[in-house]
């Protein structure tokens, strides 16, 4: 039998998962389960929603109310769930293409509304399910099957995008920093409003191979060496931060949550009619 965590929160009969050897998605999924375990919420009151892509297979392995939707639309489906039944804790798992390309409009508006949803973006900088096309987070000049001469698109910074669109809790971690994924997701779940956690994953099969990044282990070494915790970064020079990216809690500024605001309207109308 598997570990207590896996036994309690996974649909073990669906394991082993379908992801490629060395794919970071399994690590992040386990970290999310660990965050849910720590938050102590009733499994029946949690709904996990995903779109389409490699990351979107995660909910199928998790033992909650789970919804595998259409490409890019996970947040819109999740919005309906949260709005119709606010007592449900809604967690949305998306990939980088899912969340920021086809689903970009839903992402910025879910942030703007500050609706009580925890969004976790598994960012592996590539479209994996379709075989390695460049995504909105593929670094400039990197290669994908649809960017054989190098990608000339500028990459999105998902955390900055979410924070400026109005998400009230934003954080970033990596598959290497799996414990940090857990603590950030745990904080995100306890934030009443919209939270976004970018979890940097790795795709050794497509992104790694196309861009000569080596094995899953070397991609994780890169995560280890390139990620700087925001608290440490404050004491570092701009030169020292060159080529690095920030991890940790990047924004935490609670604001009134959307479904609570709507409930206030319902309550006010009820009072007025009495």
């Amino acid at each position: 039998m598997p570990s207590v965590l896996v036994e309690n929160y996974f649909r073990t009969e669906k394991l082993p998962q379908i992801w490629c050897p060395g794919c970071g998605h399994g690590i992040i999924t386990r970290s999310i389960a660990s965050a849910i375990e720590k938050s102590g919420i009733d499994k029946n009151k949690i709904c996990i929603v995903s779109g389409i892509g490699c990351s979107s297979r995660a909910p199928g392995y998790l033992d909650f109310n789970t919804l595998h939707t259409t490409h890019g639309r996970a947040l819109a489906f999740a919005t309906g769930i949260k709005m119709a039944k606010p007592e449900i804790k809604v967690i949305v798992i998306m990939g980088d293409g899912d969340a920021t390309a086809i689903g970009g409009n839903h992402l910025i508006h879910a942030c703007r509304r500050n609706i009580g949803i925890t969004a976790i973006v598994y960012n592996n900088s590539i479209y994996g399910m379709t075989g390695g096309q460049y995504s909105p987070t593929t670094p400039k000049y990197d290669k994908g099957t649809t960017a054989p001469y190098g990608n000339i698109d500028k990459a999105f910074d998902i955390c900055k995008l979410a924070a400026s669109a109005g998400a009230t809790y934003v954080g970033r971690a990596t598959a290497y920093h799996a414990s940090l994924v857990t603590s950030l997701v745990q904080n995100a779940i306890s934030n009443e409003g919209f939270s976004l956690i970018e979890a940097i994953s790795m795709c050794p099969t497509y992104y790694g191979r196309k861009n000569k990044k080596g094995s899953a282990v070397s991609m994780m070494e890169w995560q280890k060496n390139s990620a700087i915790n925001i608290s440490a970064a404050a004491k570092m020079s701009p030169e020292a931060l060159e080529g690095k990216f920030l991890i940790g809690e990047l924004k935490n500024s609670p604001e009134p949550e959307y479904t609570n605001e709507y409930q206030k309207i319902i309550d006010r109308l009820k009072k007025e009619s009495q």
Partner: peptide, 17 residues
């Protein structure tokens, strides 16, 4: 919602509850 697609998606989510 932010668009027509979102409107359709949201009613499916709501109906599931």
């Amino acid at each position: 919602m932010e668009d027509e697609i979102g409107g359709m998606a949201a009613i499916i989510g709501a109906s599931l509850t």
